[in-house]
Design a binder for these strands. Structure first.
Lengths: 153, 153
DNA sequence: CCATATAATTAAGCAGACTTAAATATTAAA
DNA sequence: TTTAATATTTAAGTCTGCTTAATTATATGG
């Protein structure tokens, strides 16, 4: 097996494990909180940057502007986002997370990554350092790829 | 920052990047193929092991046995799974993937992991080896955690 | 054998997220 | 200024995946 094949198969295996574990916590949390996929996507997106434009957000999520508008209305009602008129162009709305919205994102991430605590307990300090170092490398290389927006999900 | 904190924050960061990238390809593929979350969950589950019992599968997916039955009917119509009577207990059905079903799972994984090719192109052979080694460690440690069923998603 | 329990399916209906189309407000261009 | 384009919202309806309840078939225990 070439280094390339090994790399690919290891990554493949690992992604399956981590996706599986993470999705469990994630779905459970979302369902519990009554958040749709679009809502989660919006919250994550806004957690990385504020966003101008309902239609634009809709495109990002792959839904119509009407759907985006309705979904945002729910998030506003829940007090998770702020929706204000853009003074530059008063047809548009500026969107941002409220404090409560940040909290929800944070909790959702914890729900998704909670199993890491268990994993971490099985690792020596030495191993953790080694892992941190390599992951840091992967992260840096990932950043060099053409960056679509982050925070989709 | 302690090794523990560093480990956690690196992992956190990495999971966000990889989940985001993977979910994009994944959702897109699923929508394109007209596969619901339950269907995808079923296909992945069956790709790891055959399964006996519609109700049991439903529990695994978090839906009623009626919902599971209906969803399975679609998958049978699509030719993605086989559903046969269990000779041990003829009330139950044995479920397994067809060749076509395996193909769909495989493609879905590719759609999810396609971006790894780009990442891989940015890495030296040396780096790939290093990464493979560490990921292997993580995988092994993950396996030691109490294993719920694999193949959820 | 009969009564009860269990598995899968079918039927009917509900809820949520989506769609298109129309209405309103604002901006840009002729 | 008038006309056209753009952004959002509202209204009405559709579609999908789910639910509960009823039905059928098989297994099990008295």
């Amino acid at each position: 097996m070439s280094p390339q094949d090994l790399f690919y198969s290891m990554f493949h295996e690992w992604m399956e494990i981590s996706m599986h574990r993470s999705m469990r916590g994630y779905m459970h949390y979302a369902r519990e909180k009554g958040l749709s996929r679009s809502m989660i996507g919006t919250l994550f997106h806004l957690s990385h940057r504020d966003h101008a434009g309902v239609t634009h957000l809709g495109e990002h999520l792959g839904v119509s502007s009407a759907a985006a508008s309705q979904m945002l209305e729910h998030l506003v009602e829940e007090g998770l986002i702020q929706r204000t008129e853009d003074p530059e162009d008063r047809r548009m709305k500026k969107l941002s997370l409220t404090e409560k919205g940040y909290q929800v994102v944070k909790e959702s991430v914890s729900a998704r990554l909670g199993w890491l605590d268990e994993l971490s307990a099985n690792l020596s300090e030495e191993e953790k350092n080694q892992i941190s170092k390599v992951i840091n490398l992967i992260i840096e290389k990932s950043r060099e790829l053409d960056l679509p927006d982050k925070g989709e999900c």
